[in-house]
């Protein structure tokens, strides 16, 4: 069953059960250094990506470091 999840401000219809599955579905290498995830305004630690389940309407932020001043 697919659900709409808001990923980085964009609604996506996805068939994913966990944060880890979401990252894979979006083509983000979960092993890559610097990637961090927040679910509904709270950080999900890397160690919990496989365990934390997603629900329809969830808002996910996937970030990494960029150049900055």
């Amino acid at each position: 069953m697919s659900a709409v999840i808001r990923v980085n401000g964009e609604d996506r219809r996805l068939q994913v059960a966990t944060v880890m599955e979401l990252l894979r579905a979006e083509g983000v290498d979960p092993g890559r250094r610097g990637v961090a995830v927040a679910l509904n305004g709270a950080v999900v630690r890397r160690a919990d990506w496989s365990a934390v389940a997603l629900a329809p309407g969830d808002e996910v932020e996937i970030v990494k470091p960029f150049a900055g001043g």
Partner: peptide, 18 residues
Amino acid sequence: TASIRRISLEGYSESLVD
């Protein structure tokens, strides 16, 4: 210094961390 920004879902380039 570095900034923290949304990853581009269309693929991303070399990491500042690396």
